[in-house]
Nucleic acid binder design. Structure first.
Lengths: 332, 332
DNA sequence: TTGTATGCGTTATCAA
DNA sequence: TTGATAACGCATACAA
C-alpha cells in the first residue's frame, strides 16, 4: 500500500516528528536532515494521508456539493463555478446528484457530514419537503450555503429571481400579441417552477388575460417529457399560440416534436424557455440565468464562512434573470 | 462541532466500545443498553466520523473520478454512469475536472490519492503526455481503471473504437457522393481525435480521394471554436462539400455560424459530428457512443478490483460506436 | 454483557 | 536541532 511517515522515519533513521516537520516545511532543521527526508519521500513516492491529517487538523480540505441532476446544463454550470473556486483554495469537491429525490438528498448530505467535509453547498428540493436535515446542519455548526432560501432558517444562500424572469417572459409574449399562452411546469419539488408559474399567472391576470387549464402541462422532468407535451399540443384543437417551458431542455423536447411533425416554431407555436443554455442551435428566446456566477458565489460565501471565525452576517443574495430575445416568438 | 463516540459514552455512562458495538449492530448487548445508546445517538444527531473510521478500516468508501470537462455532455454521461454504480455500493465520488490540462490532471489525481480513495477512474490525456502518475498508481497498488489504454501499462480500461466510428462516417459521406470532405480535430492531447482523424484519412486514401490541407481545422475545444470554423468555411472560396467535426459540440458551433449567415445545412454544407448528444434539436447525423454504459462499466470493473483480493485478469474492453443517420448530409 | 488497551497516520507539545 | 509522546475518533482484540 502507501508509504507512511513511520516508514520514512525508519528508512532515514530519524524520528516521525522530524520527518513530519520537514515535510511541512517547518523551520529549524539542518539542511542535511531536510535533504535526507525529502529525498526518501521523493524516492518512495510518499503522499501524505490527508484523511489522517484531517483527524488532527480539523480541516479535510473537502467540500460537498449536492445538486439535483448532473446531466442538466443548469447544474453543470453551477458545478463548474463551485469547482473553480474550490480548486483555487486547494479544495476537492464531493459531488452528489440527488436525482430530485428527497430521500437521496438527505442520505447524500449525511454521507458528506460523515466524511467531515469542511462545508456544504446544497441545491435542495424546496417545495413539499421538510428541511430537518438542513436545520440539523446549522445546529451542528457545519458551514453551508444553499441555492434558494430555506423556510424557517437564517443561512447563507444565493437565489435567482425566477418570479421576475417569468414576468418578463409573459410580458414579452403579451407585447407580441399573444393572448392564449400555455405553460409547462417542472418538478413539483422545484421552487423555480412554482415561482415561474406564479409570475406567469399574475402577469396574465394583471393584463386581463385568462388561462385555460388545458394549456397547462405539469411536472415535465426530462427532454422526453417535452416531446410528449409537444405531441399533445400538436393533437390539440384549441392550441395556445405561445408556450412557456420550465426550462430549455423541456423546450428542446417541444421543438423536436414539432420538427418531427413538420410543424414550425414560431410559425405554428411561439416558444420560450429558461436557462439560455449554450448547447442550443435553435434560436430559442430564453431567459439567461447566471448559473456559473451563482456557483462561484456560493463557493466564495462558503469559504468565507469556513475560514472566518467571527460569525459575520449571513449573505442572502438574489441574482436577476434576463430575457434574451431571439426568433422563436411570432408577432401576432 | 460534531458529537463523537466518546461523548455518547459519557452521556450514557457506558464505555466507548459498548457504544461502538451497538452502533455497528454487533450482537451481544442487552436491549436496555442498545436502546439507551440508540436513543442518545438519535437525540444528539450522531453521525459516525467516516474519516476516523477509514483510518482503521482500510476503506474510505470513496472513489475518485478525473474527467476532462464537466460541461461536455460526453463526460456528463460518463460521470452519471460512474455515480449510479458508486451509489449502489454506498460509495461517494470525488469529481475532478482537469480542463484538459496535464498538470491539473496530475495534481488532482494526487489529491485523490492523498485522500486515500479506495479506487480511481481516470479519463486521462492520452497523446503527447507522460504517464508517470498512472504508472505510480499501479506501483502503489491502488485500484484504478482508465478511459482508454495507457501506453506501456497493463491495467483495466474501457475504450471506444473511435477509428472504426470515423471509418463509418467517412464511408457514409463518400457513399452520399462527397469527394471534398473537411475535418475538424479536437485537442492535441485527445487520442479520440487522433484516431478519428486517422480513420478519416485512411478511408479517404482507400477510396482514392485526396485531402486538401486547407480543409482541415485543428484543435477545436469549445463551441466557440466551432463557430469560428464555420465562419472560416463561409468565407472560403473552395469550400468542402462535407465536414466531419470532432464532436457534436463543435458541430453545433458550425451550425450556429451557418444559420447566422443565412446558409443551410445540408444545403450549403453537409455535416457530421460525434457523440450523438441528446440535447440537440438539429437533425445532425452523428456517431452514437455508449458513454453512460462506459461509465457504469468502468465503475463495475473498479469495484471488482477493489473488493476482490485475488488479482484476476485485467479487463480491457472496447466498445463500438454506431453511426446514426439523420438529415445533415446531402446526397450529391 | 461490558470495559480496557491498542493501533490507524498525522500533527502538536514538550523535553532533550 | 531532534526525539518522545499524546491526541484526533473509531474499531477491534482481549480482559473482566
Amino acid at each position: 500500500m502507501n508509504i507512511t511517515i513511520a516508514d520514512l522515519a525508519r528508512i532515514t533513521g530519524l524520528a516521525k516528528s522530524t520527518v513530519s516537520g520537514v515535510l511541512n516545511n517547518k523551520a529549524g532543521f539542518s539542511e542535511k536532515t531536510r535533504a535526507k527526508v525529502l529525498e526518501a519521500a521523493e524516492k518512495h513516492g510518499y503522499v501524505p494521508n490527508e484523511i489522517a491529517r484531517g483527524l488532527t487538523s480539523k480541516f479535510t480540505k473537502t467540500i460537498g456539493l449536492v445538486i439535483k441532476d448532473i446531466t442538466n446544463p443548469f447544474y453543470n454550470r453551477i458545478t463548474k463555478g463551485v469547482q473553480d473556486v474550490a480548486n483555487e483554495h486547494g479544495y476537492t469537491v464531493f459531488l452528489c446528484s440527488s436525482g430530485e429525490n428527497h430521500m437521496v438528498e438527505v442520505a447524500q448530505m449525511n454521507a458528506m457530514v460523515g466524511k467531515r467535509v469542511d462545508g456544504l453547498i446544497i441545491a435542495p428540493l424546496l417545495e413539499g419537503v421538510t428541511f430537518d436535515h438542513i436545520y440539523e446542519l446549522k445546529r451542528k455548526e457545519i458551514p453551508f450555503a444553499t441555492l434558494g432560501e430555506i423556510p424557517g432558517l437564517t443561512c447563507d444562500y444565493v437565489e435567482f429571481d425566477d418570479y421576475q424572469g417569468s414576468v418578463q417572459v409573459t410580458n414579452h409574449l403579451i407585447e407580441y400579441g399573444h393572448a392564449k399562452i400555455g405553460f409547462v411546469t417542472g418538478q413539483r419539488t422545484s421552487r423555480a417552477s412554482k415561482q415561474r408559474f406564479q409570475g406567469f399567472k399574475d402577469t396574465l391576470f394583471e393584463r386581463g388575460l385568462t388561462l385555460s387549464e388545458r394549456h397547462v402541462f405539469h411536472e415535465a422532468k426530462h427532454l422526453a417529457d417535452g416531446v410528449d407535451v409537444g405531441n399533445r399540443l400538436i393533437a390539440m384543437e384549441d392550441r395556445p399560440t405561445a408556450l412557456i417551458c420550465f426550462d430549455d431542455v423541456i423546450a428542446m423536447g417541444v421543438i423536436k416534436a414539432f420538427e418531427a411533425a413538420g410543424l414550425s416554431i414560431p410559425g405554428d407555436l411561439s416558444l420560450i424557455g429558461f436557462d439560455d443554455i449554450e448547447l442550443m442551435t435553435f434560436p430559442l428566446t430564453s431567459v439567461s440565468i447566471p448559473t456559473y456566477e451563482a456557483g462561484k458565489l456560493l463557493a466564495k460565501i462558503l469559504f468565507e464562512r469556513i475560514f472566518e471565525e467571527n460569525v459575520s452576517e449571513y449573505k442572502q443574495i438574489t441574482l436577476s434573470e434576463q430575457l434574451v430575445v431571439r426568433s422563436s416568438v411570432k408577432r401576432m
